Each structure stands twice: as C-alpha cells, then as structure tokens.
Simulated assay, not measured.
Amino acid sequence: MLKFWKKKPAETEAEIPIVPPADPATLDGAAPVIQETLAEVPSPAEGRTDNERFVAPIIDPTPASETEAEAAPAKRSWRERLSGNSFARGLSSLFVRHPKLDDDLLDELETTLITADVGVAASSELVENLRKRMHKREFADSPALLAALRAELVALLKPVEKPLDIRGRHPFVTLVVGINGAGKTTTIGKLARRWRDERHAVMLAAGDTFRAAAVEQLKTWGTRNDVPVISQGQDADAASVIFDALQAARSRDIDVLIADTAGRLHTQGGLMDELGKIARVLKKIDVDAPHEVLMVIDGTTGQNAVNQVRQFLQIVGVTGLVVTKLDGTAKGGVVFALAREFGLPIRFVGLGETATDLRVFEAEAFVDGLLPASLGVEGQGHD
C-alpha cells in the first residue's frame, strides 16, 4: 500500500537549442546606417525576373483576438464613421429645425458650412448657386434642396478624387510631411500595412531624427507590420538617412519606400529647408524622386490647414494630401476648402484608429457620410 507514494522517475524533456540573437544587418555602402527589421530582406537573385521579385511575407504579430477586433470596424460605412462629425450633426439639425424651403434656410445653411470650416468664399458661392436655383423654382421642398446640395458638394470634391498609383516606379518613393501632431507616423504605419497586404515589398525610412522617440515609434510600426526600417540615431542628418534608405531599397528590390520626416511648423525655417535638402539628395539617385510628397493634415485644425498646405507647397512641392481624424471632433469642411483652394489630390482620409480605417478618398461616399440619412443614399465605404 506504500507503493502509492513511490516517486515516479522524471520524464526526459527534449533539449531545446538556444539560438543567439542575430547581429543587426548592415547595408553595403552605408556603414553608419542600422537596419532594423523583423524579417530579413534578401538581396535580388541573379537572373531573377521581375515576376520573381521578393515580396515581404505577410506575418501579422497581432494576436487573433486583436486582429478580429480590429477587422470589425472596417465593415462600418462612411456614414457610421462620420456621423459624430460636427459637420454631419449641424446639417442634420438644420433640416430638422428648418424644414421650410426659404431664404432663411439658405442663410442658416451658409452659416453651417462656414462654421464647419468649408470657408467663407466656398460657402457663399455654393449657397448663392442654390439660392438662384430656388428662386427659379427648381426645388419643390427641402429634400430636393438637400439633393442639390449633395450634387454641389460632390462636384467640388470629384476633381481631387485621385487614388495614389504606386506602380511604374521601383522603388516608389513616398515622402511624408506635415506639422507636429497631424498623425504622420501613424499614417505611415497604416500605409505600410495597406501596401504590404497588397503584396508589395515595403521599407520605411526613419527620417524624423528631430523628435525624441520618433525613430522608436516608427520601428514599432515596422514590427507590427513586419517591414524593415532604416534608421540612425536621434539628431542624425535626415537627408542622409533617407538617401541611404533609398540605396538599400534599390539594392534589395523593394517596391515602395515610405520616408518619415520631422513634424514642423511652416514658421520653422531650418526644418523647412531640410525638406528641400531631402528632395535634392534623393534626386542624386533617382531624378524623379520623391515620386509622391504626401502631406498629412489634421482634420481638426480647420482653416489653418489651408495656410499649412500653402507653405509646404512652396518648399517641397506637395503632390497629395491625407486628412486625418475625421471621425472625431473634426468639422470635416476643411476637405472642401482644400479642394477648392489647391485642387491637390486627396489620396486618403483617416476615419478611425485601426489600420483599415485609412480609406482611399471617395467623393460621393464622403459627402453621403456628412448628409442626413433622409437623402436616401448610403455611402459605400469601400477601400
């Protein structure tokens, strides 16, 4: 009966080899640069065809539960994303409070548009067109006016609905600029996720060497998206970092290089000059680089965004816009003001926190998301 207490012989566990961490990869011809990467990016094989180019493996380090939680919001329509926008709330309230079709309604509509940061000139022009049509008896009721308003707003945005095409250049160099706090680095992370999911080999360049922790923040996005990040230390020369990153991207057959830059105000002359230097240095490798200068605009900044774009245009030649934070307290009207003032393509808009909430800009879906649902037109919300 004491056999019950007899100790069993220990089971032999399989030995698990301990693999020492690999040394950081160094780039040929770029000794001072450290390449931070989750997956090693192989150099092009000799004799390999274009169809055999390396594509970064799609490995999502996010736990399955988080991935499912993040994917769910992507199914929400533009109207669901923009319903809390003050522009949307203002228009809905206007037509509820003032259902009668008259000049007072149009006056209030003009005030609503101006308050929503559409701009005085654009708002006045739009409302005067509607007023003339109303006096010509083109509108029978408020729903008809709402439909006409929709058509006017869509017409204003359609010319800037130009999705970014990264084909035709290899690597396609995207320089991301903007002021502090606009959401540049977050936008870069979301772009990396989008293009990686589309089977493009992506590389990031940590060109924001001015702000503390900016390099680490970009590395975090690189880790999350499993894409390599080229970086140096804080206060390194940003133009040198991005120059070496382009060399690395070319040698390793990368499809698209996304370069971060220091956030700056248009009043900071030294930092603005740095942008011009970055563009000049890139042209030593590729005369057409950067192929896209993407300016990130905080949708909550209102009419000040117009001044920001004007200044950046003079220094670095912005070619496309991303308007972020439109799902929160942003008034949204600045999108119309930017379209009317500059006619620059609006490539993407930020409608939430997750990677899938960076949407390709669609004029009709955006307008429908702002207008009252009684119009009877739902924004589709496709990427």
Rank of each mutant, 00 (worst) to 15 (best):
E68C: 05
A236L: 01
A25N: 11
A262S: 11
A39S: 08
V177C: 05
Q234Y: 03
L175W: 03
A39Q: 11
L149D: 10
V229E: 00
P163S: 08
V176F: 07
L191S: 01
V256I: 06
R199H: 12
D117Y: 02
S123E: 01
D244C: 03
A214F: 06
F243R: 06
E70P: 03
A373H: 03
A14W: 08
A373I: 02
E152P: 10
A214T: 03
G320L: 04
D226G: 14
H98K: 13
S142F: 10
T354E: 03
V349S: 06
A88Y: 00
L338S: 00
G332D: 01
V309G: 10
N180L: 12
G328Q: 02
N85A: 00
A64H: 12
D141N: 15
G343C: 14
T12C: 01
D255M: 12
A259P: 08
E292W: 06
F4A: 13
G369S: 00
R76G: 02
E378I: 00
D208M: 07
R199K: 15
E66A: 14
A14N: 12
G263C: 09
W5D: 13
R97L: 13
D60R: 15
V241N: 09
W78G: 02
V281I: 10
K75P: 06
D208N: 05
A69I: 11
V316M: 11
T356W: 15
I16A: 15
H266I: 14
I114C: 01
R89C: 00
P17Y: 04
A71E: 15
